[in-house]
């Protein structure tokens, strides 16, 4: 019985499963407000509260607001609210690790749908070269620094209130998420100060790049997402992990070929067992594409929940073609 369930899971059509999960979660996060769903404001995904129908709020918003409190307040009693906020965020995060990106994030889902659209139109996709990859991969840490440092500088008094939630002003999710519920009010440039003007103009440019970029490059924005960087810092705390048994790996490169995020270590690293990298979105496509028994496995509380099998690979080959089908 047990092995039967296990087999069924290992042989599942990940592509379809993931599509339905993403669709349901997308509806919850983007339109959940209509169903009176409120998941709080410490979510580890881009559930942007600028969209009034959102079922919750991205943690970066309260984080930036909290850190921008006057320093005396921040380092006084308010430090507790910052810590509580972080712990709430972590409480959400530990359940899914970076699968929050791969399965939950509405902005990530949106990018996957752009990709699906591109596939239908028959336009081929782009990839970065290794050198580009190495350089661009650092940008998310710059954004994370903006998220953390700018509010602190506001608290000290070095930056004015026009820098409030500076990252959000640049974030494409702020502009795109409200549009999903018919609110176009974020598609504006704020001329009230030079800072606001520059930041919102950057936001508009990023929104444009988001649309074009995610059309030609899979998961274009995830590569620059500060939330992804924040996730990675706490990744080891999570109860779910992606593990690799390097001794059985044949280094065929299937996993790398299907990886939306071009994480090279998934194929090349045969020594580390924990194979989650900062760019990983834990979409588990690599596990589904791995033709060897038990080389890649997705663990929940150290229990093997979904693992790569020869049988599963062969079953899935009809749907996921790592060589020909990928456009």
């Amino acid at each position: 019985m047990k092995s039967k369930i296990k087999n069924a899971i290992n042989n599942m059509n990940l592509h379809r499963t993931r599509f339905w999960i993403q669709l349901v979660v997308f509806v919850i996060f983007v339109y959940g407000g209509y169903f009176a769903i409120d998941l709080g404001s410490k979510l580890p995904v881009f559930a942007c509260p600028y969209n009034s129908a959102s079922a919750g709020a991205c943690y970066l918003i309260p984080l930036q607001h909290q850190l921008s409190m006057p320093t005396r307040v921040l380092l006084g009693g308010a430090a507790i609210s910052v810590i509580v906020g972080l712990l709430t965020f972590l409480a959400w995060f530990v359940f899914l690790n970076k699968a929050w990106c791969g399965y939950m994030c509405p902005i990530g889902t949106l990018q996957d749908w752009f990709t699906a659209l591109r596939k239908r139109t028959g336009i081929r996709y782009s990839t970065y070269t290794r050198i580009q990859f190495e350089k661009l991969s650092k940008i998310k840490y710059i954004f994370l620094a903006i998220v953390l440092l700018f509010p602190l500088l506001m608290g000290v008094g070095l930056l004015g209130s026009q820098w409030s939630a500076a990252f959000c002003q640049m974030c494409p999710a702020r502009i795109i998420s409200p549009m999903l519920s018919g609110d176009f009010s974020q598609l504006t440039i704020d001329f009230s100060s030079k800072t606001a003007m520059v930041l919102t103009a950057i936001g508009i440019v990023f929104a444009g790049l988001f649309v074009i970029g995610s059309f030609v490059k899979k998961r274009f924005f995830c590569f620059f997402c500060p939330m992804s960087a924040l996730h990675y810092i706490f990744s080891d705390l999570s109860v779910v992990q992606l593990k690799k048994n390097g001794s059985k790996c044949t280094r065929c490169g299937d996993c790398y070929a299907v990886c939306d995020m071009q994480v090279k270590d998934i194929a090349d690293d045969v020594t580390s067992t924990n194979i989650i990298r900062d760019d990983c979105i834990l979409c588990l496509k690599c596990v589904a594409a791995c033709p060897e028994d038990g080389v890649l496995h997705f663990d929940i509380l150290k229990l093997n929940a979904f693992s790569s099998t020869k049988e599963g690979f062969e079953k899935r080959m009809g749907m996921e073609k790592p060589y020909e089908g990928q456009r």
Partner: peptide, 23 residues
């Protein structure tokens, strides 16, 4: 008084156009 849709749309169009052409 201070938010402009017009400029945002112009900027968005320019971005889309430029990025599209570059690609």
């Amino acid at each position: 008084d201070y938010e402009s849709y017009g400029y945002a749309l112009i900027l968005l169009s320019i971005t889309l156009l430029c990025a599209g052409i570059v690609i």
